[in-house]
């Protein structure tokens, strides 16, 4: 009977472990990712989001359609997004306007808003910085 219980518990642990990554992948946009792994280096947004959620000191650089961004999280749960290099096809005046602009967002551990990394315009309501201002202002031309 005792042997059966141990086997059952092991099976349960295995099932939970197998299901955890799947649950993480289906987190809807706009909600906080439920994540536990906190790698010290990342190369993908998904990895960064998981680490930032745990307030890990980490920076990644990603090239996207709008330009090359750097995303940084810190131990004191501060997120910084910087538009390092705008898209080469922007006009010179837009490049000058956008280049090097940053925004910062303070958050509570476990409540990282993944839209800060996946979106240009959403989720910035409580963030601050010139990048937020410029991205907001440009919506006047939308």
């Amino acid at each position: 009977m005792k042997g059966h219980t141990v086997t059952l518990l092991c099976g349960l642990v295995f099932i939970i472990a197998a299901c955890a990554p799947a649950a993480q992948q289906t987190t809807p946009s706009g909600t906080e990712p439920q994540t536990t792994p906190t790698p010290s280096t990342c190369t993908t947004k998904d990895c960064f989001i998981a680490s930032a959620n745990a307030c890990t000191d980490l920076t990644i650089t990603v090239t996207e359609a709008a330009g090359t961004f750097s995303y940084a999280s810190s131990n004191d749960c501060l997120f910084t997004k910087t538009l390092v290099t705008p898209n080469a096809n922007e006009t010179q005046q837009m490049k000058t306007l956008l280049q090097g602009k940053s925004l910062t967002c303070k958050y509570v551990k476990g409540k990282f808003d993944q839209r800060w990394v996946t979106s240009l315009i959403y989720g910035m309501e409580y963030c601050k910085g010139q990048l937020k201002d410029v991205l907001g202002q440009l919506m006047a031309f939308a």
Partner: peptide, 12 residues
């Protein structure tokens, strides 16, 4: 003329 604006509008 602006890829960033194009992306922003698409998202909106």
């Amino acid at each position: 003329t602006s890829p960033l604006l194009r992306e922003s509008i698409g998202e909106a």
